[in-house]
Design a protein around this nucleic acid. Structure first.
Lengths: 342, 342
DNA sequence: TTGTAGGCGTTATCAA
DNA sequence: TTGATAACGCCTACAA
């Protein structure tokens, strides 16, 4: 068994109170210098480490953020998600917060959320981190569950909700900005490479695609929308197939850089040149996008910044200084050379 | 304040003992049916959630894995690291383990480790996850610190250590397998694109490069080794510069796919064809590597599998069934079309 | 400046 | 079947 504060007190011939006092504030003057010395010795000798959970229990604060992750797949596999996590961890670290990830147990988003919420009492605050796996109908259920706890929480990765919950919103998630960009570059026949047909943001993306097309007095064509499930191979295959059907298309807006890579590959096989013959815009500003040939013009969603914003907002919420607060993280276009003026 | 077990007991007109008993085993026959019913009602009504930390304290087990991460940069930004984390989380989840990440506080690897070890008492076991940021001299210090706690732990991402610690070892991390592959394909002048000159594995990689070169009776040339810090732009620039100096080179082994992408880009600018004029092999089997042009032949380190192995070994260690155990995760070459026979 | 004692929310022992 | 009650390790009045 590891040493406890009483062991230290005994060895240092003092009380647990003094030990606790000193260990929590080395500069306290409520403990004498000689006693301090003896405590130091004892700590060193017994290799004492304060018990995280005992301390949390006693202080009514754990300095821990609970990560509610309604997903069935393992965490940490999605670069987009990881970007946000990096931002969260960065700020959490500055403020001495731990990050606690729970098992993803259950068959549905709802079940996973329930399990995690029920088994996470004791954290100072929670981040409800939705994923592509969530359907629209899941979201409300998840929010309701976490709301019942009456503890501080922030949502990320879901569209604006009317409810008075703290949210970090990334408008670029639900918008095909790239289409607007292509329109402004003079393109008239623009394909959309979307993700999962039933995905959390897909219908809004399609709406915005339509909006941009119609605002420019162009013709909206359902057939120009391809759903490749964020899979680059599928994107390649779908694009090959449909591009030969619709040779009038001069540009394609992809909702991920990886799918854009699939498009590049398809065009390469067709001996067409990206940028010159066909314009392509991606999304995410992935590490590889700058070195593709030609370098990919892409929409940067600023995931890291979003993560930073989430954790900052959560800290406010924990302090009771935020409720129903909505923060927006804007996206922008990184112009490289895969798009030409038409 | 949230409801506690006593609140439940009071409302259900029973004792905390019965509540605890029932809540931890719905099928227990040490609690009467009627009492069970009343407890259910009370739990529902008061929206009770058991306190994670109180439970851990009492049970002498937290079902939590502490992640010791000696790094200065934010976590979750390195795809390689994230692959391992995904494997860890996947197994942890199956076994109902939480993952706890601590702040990365300190100026050096040693300081960060110290902070995390000192402030993490209470976890059932620990994973010491070294990063590129660790120098060789840091590793021993970090191990010593975590060893002092006498708790179960497993190391990942460091070379084999003589000590009787549990380790998951990825030989491919310290080996330039790609060079061997290129040699066998008949190449005689092979460049090595390495990472950081002072990196944890770099010197071993260089040794293995030399070993493969000399085993094939080829001439080892210091100048063929480039250090691009795992940065694709730097790789591009360095390669451009040195390849024109040493035009006899027919193949390059890159220690990451991203750096290989830099090489592709450089060759493209030189109007040379990858695969035909110059062979390239990468490492990591990154998501984008299969769709590069030409598809990149690469060494797959099996990060996810490594993570799975780490967490499995840790669970053994927690049960007291593993000490000084070394597990190996082997790599293999994914053959695509960026390497030709010379 | 130091020490005593009660409480944080659980679980577990033991007697009823 | 039930219910007191003593841990678990720490913090913090409060008293001395």
């Amino acid at each position: 068994m590891s040493a406890t504060i009483s062991d230290i007190a005994r060895l240092a011939e003092t009380s647990t109170a003094s030990v606790s006092l000193y260990l929590n504030d080395r500069n306290t003057n409520r403990v004498g210098v000689k006693v301090k010395g003896r405590i130091d010795e004892a700590v060193e000798k017994l290799n004492y480490r304060p018990h995280l959970f005992a301390r949390s229990l006693s202080k009514h604060a754990s300095n821990t953020v609970g990560m509610i992750f309604p997903t069935l797949r393992p965490l940490f596999i999605n670069p987009y998600t990881n970007g946000i996590l990096a931002g969260i961890q960065s700020v959490a670290s500055e403020h001495h917060f731990n990050l606690l990830f729970f098992p993803t147990i259950g068959e549905t988003s709802k079940e996973v959320t329930r399990f995690q919420v029920e088994n996470s009492m004791g954290c100072d605050g929670y981040i409800l981190f939705s994923t592509r796996f969530c359907r629209k109908e899941d979201i409300e259920s998840n929010i309701k569950q976490i709301k019942r706890t009456k503890q501080a929480f922030v949502t990320i990765n879901i569209p604006y909700q009317e409810e008075d919950i703290n949210q970090v919103i990334i408008p670029g998630l639900e918008d095909a900005y790239g289409v607007d960009y292509l329109v402004k570059k003079g393109h008239k026949y623009i394909m959309l490479m979307a993700g999962r047909k039933d995905g959390i943001n897909t219908s809004k993306i399609v709406d915005s695609y339509k909006k941009y097309i119609e605002a420019a007095n162009l013709r909206f064509k359902e057939e120009y929308i391809l759903y490749a499930d964020y899979n680059s191979n599928k994107a390649k295959q779908l694009f090959s197939e449909y591009f030969s059907k619709y040779p009038e298309v001069t540009a394609i807006c992809s909702m991920s850089d990886l799918m854009a890579l699939g498009v590049y590959s398809a065009l390469y096989d067709m001996k067409l040149s990206v940028g010159q013959d066909v314009s392509v815009i991606g999304r995410n500003n992935s590490d590889f996008s700058a070195l593709m040939h030609p370098p990919l013009t892409t929409v940067d969603l600023h995931m890291f910044e979003a993560g930073v914003t989430v954790q900052r907002l959560l800290i406010e919420a924990i302090r009771g200084e935020a409720q129903g607060k909505k923060e927006y993280v804007e996206s922008d276009v990184i112009e490289r050379s895969s798009v030409s003026t038409n």
